[in-house]
């Protein structure tokens, strides 16, 4: 079971908070709606991963696809507060070198706007 919520802030900042497992079933259940919110239009997207307790490669794909879409639109996407084991998967995948990770919303929003 996975779900997400969306909050809009000034400066085109959109926070998308995901809760649950980003595995095949989880990604399948939110992929379309998540992509609309995180990649449907140019924004400064902060994906809050603090509520994600499991992520497989398909979860990485979800984040990379949305990030690439934002890049192509002139927007940006950053990650916020992944749990340690999820962060490790992101690092082992090498995605942390491509999509910045921040530990606080303030840092994430500052850098998302600056990108």
């Amino acid at each position: 079971m996975v779900e997400f919520s969306v909050n809009h802030f000034d400066n085109d900042i959109v926070e998308v908070k995901i809760n649950g497992r980003l595995d095949i079933q989880g990604v399948g259940s939110i992929e379309t709606a998540f992509t609309v919110q995180a990649a449907g239009q140019k924004s400064k997207v902060i994906v809050d991963l603090s509520g994600v307790d499991f992520m497989s490669s398909i979860g990485i794909r979800l984040l990379v696809t949305a990030s690439k879409a934002q890049l192509s639109r002139g927007g940006s996407l950053v990650l916020l507060s992944p749990q340690p084991l999820v962060r490790e998967i992101i690092v082992v995948s090498g995605i942390d070198m491509l999509i910045p990770i921040y530990d606080t919303f303030d840092d994430a929003s500052k850098h998302a706007v600056a990108m």
């Binding site: 497989s56 490669s57 990485i60 794909r61 990379v64 690439k68 995948s93 995605i95 491509l98 999509i99």
Partner: peptide
Amino acid sequence: TLEQAKVGGLG
């Protein structure tokens, strides 16, 4: 780079 990123084989 992000443009080059593919996730095939990542699993």
